[in-house]
Nucleic acid binder design. Structure first.
Length: 682
DNA sequence: ATGGCACCAGAA
DNA sequence: TCTGGTGCCATA
């Protein structure tokens, strides 16, 4: 680091000084430049510098100091345009950590942290206040001036302590749906120390117009919003508003964790369990984990909020590494909705919506209230299920269910790669009614239209919200009461607040329950809890019906009882037994190539190198197995899974093996990617 | 990113 | 054997 550049300058000005510089976009390495004397007092990490590069000039960022060049001649920096670093020092530090933790070049990390064009081109003053598209949603719940409940008060005061002192302290805010987590965030931020900023991460900003609306109501123009819907220049402008201290609260999706505050007083990660915090390409970071690291570097509290915390976060709380804050009660006071599980194994009716659910819907609509229908249709594959006993064929090595592959007509394990023939009869009970489960939101919509021809339906899934602002419009359609029933995928489970919802119907809870990874049970539990939490948020209680082929599944049982802790205990036990996270750490090494045989050979070479590097460690190496979606964008992909009790050896093994592979020719015709803490195998 | 260069398929 | 397309490498 260059912290003592000025010092060096005063006493050793005749000695050459070199800095490592990185460029935005593409350039994945750092380059060494010499610093002319006139810049030495000023230049440091995060500073923007104009340098000669490829027979031209361009702006880059100083990363740190560099060793004197060997075997090449370093060129001089041409100009240092800014007085103070454009990128805050703590962000540079965070970039350094991410580079080593996620095994990505520093230049790539930095390029991803900054909005495009921040460092390049001319230095322009931002044009005032671009507006994002999340405002203007009517709040139909009666909130006005809320007095915090005692649980809220307690959470707020607990967080404000370390915030005032500026010390790192991680919290899990476990708050039931409707228990007022947003209010805790807002009031905690109100206590922000002078001169520091707050970062609020939400899974997907376009899906949380109500939350953003409430923040804007409280903080007005002190809010900066970052999300993918903004144009490049809007993003840049918001970034500069944060950098220049105009905004003190930055709300956004995962990349908002890089908000360029000098001082951060609080970081909030809302719905911290949500999978969309994981970036699945380029630098494969997890926004929640980076948030915790940033809080550590900045010295501030970080609040991980959820009604259904991830196993990882809650385990950290159980182990005492994080503090647990709980909001057990709903603010409305009439408790969680009653949940009924309906066993549809024996049903003769081929309709998705069974009579009980039809009846409840009729009652609900008659009472002048609205309903939500949820079905989580999973993408590319279906699973096989026995109509007699509910058995789902699973892998013998991995204790996860097998996925049916349409084109190969085979059952396949996505973790170890083993293929098998689909059985003709149920291996459990010998029954012959093995069935592929099918049907999604459109089927549900069609059935509802036939059952309730006079009721306006709103369908919300990836297909209906492609247009900008469409989510907000559809939500408004329901919230205003114009639409009677909302049908959709997990989008309808996200944190919106429509007080008049009297009924939630989970049409088929089995999707995802047997998904091809160890988090399947956790995801279903989360989504059922979340969607159930949409019912009865207003003046009247609500009701939830869950239709399923697996009525005894613990995810559904505990979700129906609103029992997070019960679920956690069972799930944690299972994870520990199979040594999956949070009881182990995973890394996924994937090799892709245009030619199948080259990718395959590359993966074998990677496996060999990893195995050699892992000698004498406790790192277990599985695979290579073809990726679940074997060919993506014309490239064949093979996965190698690394498992270890501890992260350190995991990193060491990867670093050693990757270095060796880079020096050999083993990876010609293919490329290797590393994913630390992978979310899945796709 | 982007220009330079080695390497391989189709035309002379 | 010549030439254009393409993938790989270096840029300080």
């Amino acid at each position: 680091m260059l912290g003592n550049a000025q010092f060096t300058h005063q006493y050793l000005s005749n000695i050459d000084m070199y800095v490592a510089v990185t460029f935005e976009l593409g350039a994945e390495r750092t380059f060494t430049y010499s610093v002319p004397e006139r810049f030495r007092a000023r230049v440091g990490p995060g500073h923007r510098v104009l340098v000669p590069f490829m027979r031209g000039e361009r702006y880059g960022f100083v990363v740190g100091d560099a060793d004197p060049p060997e075997g090449f001649a370093a060129k001089d920096i041409i100009d240092v345009p800014d007085e103070s670093p454009l990128v805050p020092a703590t962000l540079m530090e965070l970039a350094g950590w991410m580079s080593s933790y996620y095994h990505s070049p520093l230049g790539m990390v930095l390029g991803m942290m900054l909005p495009p064009g921040v460092g390049a081109g001319k230095v322009s003053k931002p044009r005032r206040d671009v507006r994002e598209d999340t405002e203007g949603l009517t709040d139909y719940s009666k909130k006005s001036e809320i007095t915090p409940t005692s649980a809220q008060e307690k959470a707020i005061s607990t967080v404000i302590g370390p915030m005032a002192k500026g010390v790192f302290s991680p919290f899990v805010l476990h708050g039931a749906t409707g228990s007022g987590k947003t209010e805790v965030y807002i009031r905690s931020i109100t206590g922000l120390p002078e001169g520091s900023g707050a970062i609020v991460l939400v899974p997907e900003i376009s899906l949380t117009p109500q939350l953003v609306g409430r923040f804007r109501e409280r903080f007005g123009d002190r809010i900066a919003v970052m999300h993918s819907g903004l144009t490049e220049s809007q993003r840049r402008a918001e970034w500069r508003r944060v950098r220049e201290g105009e905004a003190s609260v930055c709300i956004g999706a995962r990349s908002a964790v890089f908000a360029p505050f000098d001082k951060v007083g609080l970081i909030v990660v809302d719905e911290e369990h949500d999978g969309s915090y994981k970036q699945e390409e380029g630098v494969r970071y997890n926004g929640r984990d980076v948030a915790v690291m940033r809080a550590k570097l900045q010295g501030c509290p970080v609040m991980l909020g959820s009604a259904t915390p991830s196993l990882e976060s809650y385990h950290n709380a159980m182990e005492g590494r994080y503090s647990l804050l709980e909001l057990p009660e709903r603010v409305t006071g009439h408790g969680q909705p009653r949940v009924r599980i309906i066993d549809i194994r024996e049903r003769k009716e081929k309709d998705l919506i069974q009579p009980e659910l039809v009846e409840k819907t009729r009652e609900c609509l008659k009472a002048g209230r609205q309903a939500i229908f949820f079905i989580n249709r999973r993408g590319f594959s279906d699973f096989l299920i026995c109509r007699d006993c509910g058995h789902v064929p699973g892998c013998t090595n991995c204790s996860i269910s097998l996925t049916f592959h349409q084109c190969a007509k085979k059952l396949s394990c996505h973790w170890c790669g083993t293929d098998s023939e689909p059985p003709g009869l149920c291996p459990e009970c010998g029954g012959d009614k093995l069935k592929l489960i099918g049907g999604g939101t459109e089927k549900v919509e069609e059935e509802l239209a036939a059952l309730f021809p006079d009721v306006k339906l709103t369908r919300m899934d990836r297909d209906t919200i492609t247009k900008r602002g469409a989510f907000r419009e559809l939500l408004e359609e329901v919230a205003s009461g114009r639409s009677g029933i909302l049908v959709g995928t997990q989008l309808v489970a996200k944190g919106h607040d429509i007080p008049n919802i009297g009924l939630v119907g989970v049409v088929l809870a089995d999707y995802g329950l047997h998904g091809a990874d160890f988090r399947a049970a956790e995801r279903v539990f989360q989504v059922v809890m979340q969607v159930a939490g949409r019912a009865g948020r207003g003046d009247h209680p609500g009701e939830v019906i869950v239709q399923t082929y697996s009525p005894e599944h613990y995810s559904l049982i505990f979700a129906s009882k609103h029992d997070y802790k019960g679920f956690y205990d069972i799930e944690a036990e299972a994870r520990e037994e199979l040594s999956y996270p949070p009881f182990s750490r995973l890394a996924l090494v994937s090799v892709k190539g245009v030619k199948d045989d080259k990718a395959k050979r590359g993966a074998e070479a990677a496996k060999t190198a990893l195995t050699r590097a892992a000698k004498g460690t406790n790192v277990i190496i599985l695979g290579p197995a073809p990726a679940p979606i074997r060919r993506v964008r014309g490239k064949y992909r093979y996965n190698i899974l690394l498992k270890s009790k501890d992260v350190r050896p995991l990193h060491a093994v990867i670093d050693k093996a990757v270095k060796g592979l880079a020096e050999s020719k083993a990876l010609s015709g293919c490329r290797l990617d590393v994913d630390i803490d992978p979310q899945g195998m796709v």
